[in-house]
Amino acid sequence: MGISPEDYMLPAEREIRMLSPEGTLLPAEQQGTGPGHEYPIPSDEVLLEAYERLMVGRRVNDQNTALVRQGRLAVYPSSHGQEACQVAAAMCLEDNDWLFPTYRDTVAVISKGVDPLDVMVSFRGDWHCGYDPKEHKTAAQATPLTTQLLHAVGAAHAAVLRGEDTVVLAMCGDGATSEGDFHEALNFAAVFRLPVVFFVQNNGYAISVPLARQSAAPTLAHKAVGYGMAGERVDGNDLVALMAALRRAVDLARTERIPLLVEAHTYRMQAHTNADDDTRYREREEVKEWAAKDPVLRMETYLRDKGVLDEAAAARVSEHCETVAASLRDAMNADVNPDPLEMFDHVFSEPTQQLREQRDWLAEELAAEAAEGRADQAAKEGAR
C-alpha cells in the first residue's frame, strides 16, 4: 500500500482530454494532466483495435434500432454516442477482471467478447441473460437502477477474501448517482479498500431529468472525495483519453487495492429507449452540438492522420462490422418458439414446492390446450 488516496484524491482541474473534437492530438498543457494525473497514450496497435470495437458498437446500435422499428426487438436502450466509454471499459480489464454493466451497456458486453446474438436475446424477451457470466467475467446487464454496483462490490469483496488478483469495473449513469445503492456501494468499497472502479457515464440526463436537477456537486467525480476515494473526470467522447484514464484506474485498483471513481462526460444521441420522446425535454440544437463531438469521427480522424488507419484497414473494419450486423439481423428475424416451462427452471438451484406445483399446473394447462387443438384439427379434416 505505497500510495494514499489523498495524494491524488481530487480530480484534475480540467477534464482529461487528449483529442480535440476535430480529432487532433492536443498539446500536453491542454490535456488536463499533471502531477498525480499522468496518463500515457496507448499504443497505436491498441488504439486500432479499440477503433474496430468502436465501429462494431456503432453498427450494432444502429442495427438494433432498426430491429426495434421492425418489431423484432421489444425494446432497445441505444448507446449511440456513448460507444467510446463502453469500448474503453471493456478493454481496460484483464482476463480475470469482472465487468458489471447496465441495460445500456450492450456495446461494453460485446467488447468484452460476448457474442452479440447472446446479448440481444434479453431485449427480444427470450431470456434475462443469454450468456454465461462466469465464462465471460461479465455480469448480467442490470435493468433495476444501481443494483449492479452492490453486486460489483460484493464480487470484489469475495475476490479479496479468496486472495484473487481481480479488479471489478462497475458501470452506471449519472442518474444512478442519486440512488441510495450508489452511496452504499461506494461507502463499503472505500471502507474495506476494495479494488473496484466505479465508472459513471454522465450523459446529462436521467431519462428526462437533467444533471442540474440531480446534483449540486462541481462534478460527479468530486463525489468520490466524501467517501475517501479518488475521483477523476474524462472526456467521454475521447477514446484515447478514456483508454488511458481507465487503464490507470484499473492498475491503481489492482496494485493498491483501492476503489476509484471515474466520470466520463458524454451524450446519449438518441432517446432513452424506443418508448421515450426526447424532444419533450431537450432541444435539437443541443443534440446537434454533441453530434459534432462524435467519438467515431474523432477517433477515425486521429488514426488516419497518424497513418495507422489506411484504406485497407478501414475496408477490413467496415466489412467486419457488416458481417456482425448481418448475423445479428438474421438471428433476430428468425422466429423463436419459447418453452413457457423454462421460466421455472432457473429460479432456485433446488425448486421450491410452490414452484413445482405451479410448473405442474402450467404443464397440464398447456397439454390440455394442445390436445384441444389436435381435436379441433381432426374434426376439421373429418368434415372435409
Rank of each mutant, 00 (worst) to 15 (best):
P11M: 04
P116H: 07
L145Q: 05
E179D: 08
E184R: 12
V296K: 09
Q148E: 05
P116G: 05
V56P: 00
Y205D: 12
A291S: 14
D310Y: 01
R162F: 08
G373S: 11
L25C: 09
K306Y: 02
A292Y: 09
H37L: 07
A90G: 03
E49G: 03
W361D: 15
G154W: 11
A367L: 13
E6F: 04
R248N: 09
D118K: 14
G125K: 05
Q270S: 14
V87Q: 07
L242M: 12
S215C: 11
M171P: 02
G175P: 03
F344H: 09
P42G: 01
A152D: 00
L246N: 00
K134L: 12
A253H: 01
A367H: 11
I258A: 04
Q31T: 15
H183N: 14
Q86D: 06
K137G: 00
H136K: 08
R59L: 02
F188E: 06
K306S: 07
V107S: 01
L211P: 02
A206W: 04
E283F: 12
T323E: 15
P144E: 01
H136M: 07
T219E: 06
T255Q: 14
N187K: 09
R69M: 10
E22G: 13
R17M: 13
H346K: 12
N202R: 08
F348S: 10
D339G: 00
S4F: 08
Q30K: 15
L48Q: 06
M243S: 08
F344L: 11
L261N: 04
T352L: 11
A292D: 11
C129R: 02
T147N: 05
Q30P: 02
T166H: 05
L309W: 08
A212D: 14
D118R: 14
L67T: 02
A152L: 09
A383I: 06
P195Y: 09
L25A: 12
P210I: 13
E45H: 12
L242Y: 00
V167C: 05
S4G: 11
R280E: 13
V336E: 13
K223A: 03
A224Y: 02
V287G: 00
A28F: 10
R59C: 08
V75F: 12
A271W: 04
R298G: 09
L161P: 02
D376C: 04
Q358A: 15
A74V: 08
G307E: 07
P27Y: 13
V168T: 11
P210M: 14
H272T: 03
A379V: 10
G154I: 06
E184C: 11
R233P: 02
E184T: 15
L19E: 06
L145N: 01
E164G: 02
A253W: 00
A371D: 15
R69L: 15
S178Y: 11
A212G: 11
E256V: 10
D174S: 13
